[in-house]
Amino acid sequence: MSSTEQGTSSAAPAEPTTAPESAAAPEVPESFYYVHGKDKVVHKVSAGALQHSALIHGMISNLGYTEEQAKANPFPFENIDGDILQMVVDWCNQHKGKPTPPEDTNLPKQKEKLFDLVLAVNYLEIKELLTYCCKQVAMMVKGKSPEEIREIWMIPTDAEDEAAEKEAKKRAGKEAAGETAAAAGDAK
């Protein structure tokens, strides 16, 4: 179970609110860690839920933080939007200690959100969720014409790709010329 509160970028985030973990409390007290995304909202997540993320699991496995230390050192994921991180945390909590079902129907339907979720999940190395997300991205274009696929996945046309490539070459040429000029200047 996670709880969130608007945090700050300081090392000591605001106290997050905590909801009951579950009706049946675990016998051994569970350790918790704290994460935040671009929006600095801190999420309290149990170590069990975080096991889904190979990245975070690797980070925490040797830390041996106390509750206070964990609270004082939330993991910053500045490259992940707050709402996306919230989705990830929710998913990890929902699937904590449970076998993952073959399908997940609770993924975002909005394509932009889904695309961002894929990037976040891939970064956090959450294998099962990545599989669901990739399936969902694939399903978005099922039975669509190539033009519809282009629109949905926002794929550039060949002409756009060629123009972008030309532009990149031009830029690289300019940069190389700049470096040569700078080197010549240095030599003088």
């Binding site: 190539p146 696929i149 794929i155 046309t157």
Partner: peptide, 9 residues
């Protein structure tokens, strides 16, 4: 169908 979308694809 995807193969028709672009050369890069």
């Amino acid at each position: 169908l995807l193969s028709f979308v672009s050369k890069n694809m």
